[in-house]
Simulated scan of single mutants.
Amino acid sequence: MHELWRKDRVIEMADNRIINYSGRSLCDNYRHPLERCQTAAQAIRLYKNCISWALQERYPTKEDFLAFASKETLAENGVYIDMEFNGERIDGHVCCVFLNCKGRISTGLNVNKAIIPMIYLSDGSNLEIEVNDDLLNPIPVELYYGSIATSPDMTKLNIKDNNALTAEDNVGFTEDELSVDPDINNESL
């Protein structure tokens, strides 16, 4: 089920928000695909296509998300905002984003979808992440803006701490990276 969403609000934000590192609004490589999005789920997938950049830039913000989609729609699409977890299994998306979330989650290989999630924490998230599966490689976790990740077995996490990075450090994309059209239809993202 696709919830009706505020596309007009999203386009307005894209046109009027100044991106920190460039001093401009959203680039055409993401602005044009945003115009093609017919659902909130597609707009969320577009966000996840450039997740590291988006988290460093804090664009869109939690408030931006909540202005165009419900917390339920966001969570169904792997973006969790202001939530408290108590051991829930999170493995339905390749890219799982937590903004100001607390508590404990479990994750690992989703056999049905052939997914091992990448976890992104920002806006002061503090999660204990339990990896229930014996995987060949640790689960990738990226931290932004005062976030913390712990685990009963830290060898099962590969943590990249970006808490000290600023938007000024965010140099954007190369021309080759910008030439790839973002995939807004990949439901696993």
Rank of each mutant, 00 (worst) to 15 (best):
V97Y: 04
C95H: 10
K113C: 05
L55F: 07
K7W: 10
I44M: 04
K62P: 14
T174K: 15
F173P: 13
D169P: 12
K62D: 13
D176S: 13
V97A: 09
G172V: 15
G87F: 05
T73A: 10
D183I: 04
T166I: 06
N162M: 04
F65S: 02
C101H: 08
L74K: 13
E128C: 03
I18S: 02
P152Q: 06
Q38W: 10
N137T: 05
C27A: 14
E187I: 07
C50Y: 01
G23F: 04
L157M: 07
C95L: 07
G23Q: 07
A114G: 09
R58N: 11
R89N: 13
N170K: 03
L189Q: 00
I129Y: 06
E187A: 03
P117Q: 01
P117W: 04
S25I: 00
D64W: 11
P152K: 08
N16Q: 06
L165C: 07
K156C: 01
I90P: 15
I119C: 02
Y144A: 07
K156D: 06
D153H: 01
D169G: 11
E35T: 01
A75C: 05
D176C: 10
L143G: 01
E3V: 03
I139H: 04
Y59S: 15
D161W: 05
Y144F: 14
E168R: 08
D91P: 14
D28V: 00
N20D: 12
K160H: 13
E177P: 03
Y30L: 00
L34H: 01
R45M: 09
T155N: 08
P140H: 02
I116V: 15
Q56M: 05
S52D: 06
M118L: 11
D161C: 12
D8A: 07
I44R: 08
A43R: 01
G78V: 15
D8N: 07
C50Q: 06
N137L: 15
M83Y: 13
